[in-house]
Design a protein around this nucleic acid. Structure first.
Length: 705
RNA sequence: GCGCCCGUAGCUCAGUGGAUAGAGCGUUUGGUUGCGGACCAAAAGGUCGCAGGUUCGAGUCCUGCCGGGCGUACCA
């Protein structure tokens, strides 16, 4: 057709018309054609103009020409049948569909396919997705929730898009964290055993305590170092503080060391002290000074005009004092730390030689955590086809290291086997760096086990693609793993993909169980459930209790999941507890509510519409809604192609919004025939797509709420 | 140093090289002789971090800079 008009042949690149209430497709091809014409015809009009003016003129000419060409093409298109209307607008060619015909086609398709609507053609690729990977002996917090939700949703979308999906979990049931936890348990909590149901959480607390014990020195000095660097008042007062310290604790070398390091803002190191009493003795003095400084920061600033800018905000002092207080409770641990670290190393050796008592304790406590995880997955409606365990790949990990050494891919450096990846690849610029594959004492690292597991996945599972849903901070780590697999000659390494996601932080900063700045899944789930239940009691007091519980669960969990999915995965989520308890606006309950509303209408229909549907005099709201339900399958495909559950989270929200617009503007049950039947069918289709869409992101669609 | 990510409305965030950059929260003012008000409408709110470049056309692609976060050999 274009050739007839004297243009060269090309494909029309169509996209939806971006105006509400119109339904069809548009093309900006006229711009491309106009540009070619203008360029070809030369630049006589542009002569003598500055570069900027020439550019502006060109833009103007192209714009005019585009409109002319669009009109020309529209003229030619009028001769064809099948469109309701064709028009040239603002240089674009808009082809509007016959709404009646397309509306009934979309609605009929959905009604035929039902739960299958949105599913893609079966694909040949088998995809393995590894996600969740919680550590036993540690608490499950909202950061883990992001991973589990993202991974599970990705699996659902890939499956719907037509891929054969293999869901894998990889439990961190051994490693330094487990050893630390069990050391602390035996040393300080021997024989204690909480109620079933609380045991997993309790173990997590033991782990935190252990971590605090071992890191006491590091944490205390961390605070002092921060104060040296960021609180000028603290540094100024260091002489007076040292005088006081010297009176209480006259180990001259240590006092001089502290004085020197703080005064010169140099890092204080814990192995530089002669006496283990120095820091614990200094601690109350430092705290006193912090309180004095806080008073000063709060006080009349005019009195300190000379250093006004340098004094930190009172809020910072409050935070420092909070940290100081928390550390004060355990500062007497200082002298124990080296011995404890030694004990933990010994504990690791007990595991290495499979000491029966130790293994027994490990098995028992491990199952406490596993019971918890299984309960949480049930609550979240998240499941797996395969469960891998770190403890199962330790041996094959050692073998793979042996192989790496024999093949000279790995070498000994500083007393431990490492792979110098850049060197092996002949890269000049540092890219993959060096990866240690075993500790110098022979114990296995995370990398040791992951190499073995990856090999296992390649050899035992016939997967074409393998995806790891893991925190983005491990980006370099996975590149290293994949490169090492490549160096070993595994072709599949090219089809490995690390789907990274950013962390979940709290308003007070990054989550850290050691500092107590953490939101546990169980706590937040309970709070959200309670709130959901409370709202249902208000909105729908007559429902039976059991049903209320079910709905509260669907709404609460859905809401939590949605908050994890409605942000792009490479964006940090600042988890706000207040916000997570609000069910208004852009959140899962909004979408679920639309679904419940649709169900309500359908419930009141006595006889379902029969015969051919006639969509006459469609309103803007109806057209927008029909368009939205029509694009569901392509949205699924797009989300699967790009590994972006976010697209579907956004999509279902938009759909709910459009349904609510429709709901307000278009009476259904009170409409006249044939409109009534058509609208009932549209509500039914919309309900189906809402349900399918929510299912794709793992969120329940209750019929009543 | 090197590498990755983020910067869009007061706040939290969407945005597939294409038409007038959109939601939610918050603020102000309204809406049920209609199928559920967990809803809806209106108002106010923008140098899309800055500067170049590519393009007929850039929030979107490229380069440089600024600001923030993260990673960078025996944690996972």
């Amino acid at each position: 057709m274009l050739e007839e008009l004297g243009f060269s042949r090309r494909t029309f690149n169509m996209r939806p018309i971006p105006f509400a209430g119109t339904w069809g497709t548009s093309s900006s091809i006229s711009y491309q054609l106009a540009n070619e014409q203008v360029t070809r015809e030369g630049t006589s009009e542009l002569e003598g103009l500055s570069k900027k003016e020439a550019k502006r003129k060109t833009k103007e000419l192209v714009g005019e020409r585009a409109q002319a060409i669009a009109e020309q093409i529209v003229e030619a298109l009028q001769a064809f049948d099948g469109y309701a209307q064709v028009e040239a607008n603002n240089g674009y060619i808009n082809i509007k569909f016959d709404t009646q015909r397309f509306a009934s086609r979309v609605v009929n398709t959905i009604s035929e396919l039902g739960r299958e609507y949105g599913a893609g053609e079966p694909k040949t690729d088998r995809v393995m997705v590894e996600y969740s990977q919680p550590n036993t002996h540690k608490a499950f917090h909202v950061g883990h929730l992001r991973n589990a939700t993202l991974g599970n949703t990705l699996c659902r979308i890939l499956k719907l898009a037509g891929f054969e999906v293999h869901k894998a979990n990889y439990i961190g049931d051994i490693g330094m964290h487990v050893i630390k936890c069990l050391w602390c348990y035996q040393r300080f909590h021997q024989g204690e055993e909480p109620e079933p149901g609380e045991r997993g959480r309790w173990l997590g607390e033991i782990y935190t305590e252990s971590d605090q014990r071992v890191n006491l020195r590091q944490d205390a000095l961390g605070l002092l170092n921060e104060l040296s660097n960021e609180d000028p008042a603290f540094v100024t007062m260091v002489d007076r503080m040292m005088k006081e310290l010297y009176q209480k604790h006259p180990v001259g070398e240590d006092v001089a060391y502290l004085l020197g390091q703080i005064a010169n803002k140099r890092e204080i190191k814990d192995d530089a002290f002669y006496s283990a009493e120095t820091v614990p003795t200094f601690w109350p003095i430092a705290g006193q000074q912090l309180h004095t400084n806080l008073e000063m920061a709060r006080g009349d600033r005019e009195q300190h005009e000379d250093i006004e800018d340098e004094i930190p905000e009172p809020a910072r002092y409050e935070e420092w004092i909070r940290q100081w207080k928390s550390l004060s409770e355990r500062i007497e641990w200082w002298s124990w730390v080296p011995a404890w670290q030694e004990e933990i190393r010994n504990e690791f050796q007990r595991w290495e030689r499979k000491d029966p008592d130790f293994v027994h304790l490990w098995e028992t406590t491990r199952s406490w955590s596993m019971d918890d995880f299984e309960r949480i997955y049930r609550e979240l409606d998240i499941d797996f086809d395969t469960w891998f365990y770190e403890s199962e790949v330790e041996e094959s990990g050692r073998e793979i290291v042996k192989e790496l050494m024999e093949r000279e891919i790995a070498e000994i450096s500083d007393g431990l086997p490492v792979v110098k990846i850049d060197e092996k690849l002949g890269l000049e610029k540092e890219t993959y760096r060096t990866m240690p594959v075993l500790r110098s004492d022979g114990t296995t690292l995370y990398s040791t086990k992951d190499l073995a597991l990856t090999k296992h996945k390649f050899e035992e599972y016939g997967v074409d693609r393998s995806i790891w849903v893991v925190d983005v901070r491990q980006g370099l780590y996975f590149q290293q793993i994949f490169k090492i697999m490549e160096l070993m000659g595994f072709e599949q390494a090219g089809k490995c993909f690390h789907l990274g996601y950013e962390m979940v932080t709290l308003p007070g900063g990054a989550m850290s169980s050691r500092s107590g700045n953490v939101v546990l899944y169980d706590d937040i789930a309970q709070a959200v459930l309670q709130r959901a239940r409370q709202i249902i009691d208000e909105k729908n007091p007559d429902l039976p209790d059991e049903q209320k519980d079910d709905i509260a669960h669907d709404v609460a969990i859905g809401s939590l999941k949605y908050s994890m999915l409605s942000r792009d995965n490479n964006r940090v989520i600042v988890f706000d507890i207040e916000e997570s308890l609000s069910f208004d606006g852009h959140a899962a309950p909004y979408i679920q509510y639309a679904h419940a509303r649709a169900c309500r209408i359908l419930e009141k229909v006595d006889t379902p519409p029969s015969g051919e549907l006639r969509f006459v005099d469609l309103t803007t709201e109806e057209i927008d809604l029909i368009q939205q339900i029509a694009i569901f399958p392509s949205e699924i495909q797009r989300a699967a192609d790009e590994y972006k559950p976010l697209y579907i989270a956004t999509y279902v929200y938009e759909l709910a919004k459009k349904f609510n617009d429709f709901y307000r503007a278009c009476p259904v049950l009170h409409a006249e025939e044939p409109q009534r039947s058509a609208r009932i069918a549209l509500v039914s289709s919309t309900r189906q797509v809402l349900a399918n869409g929510l299912d794709a992101i793992g969120i329940a669609a209750p019929e009543v709420m």
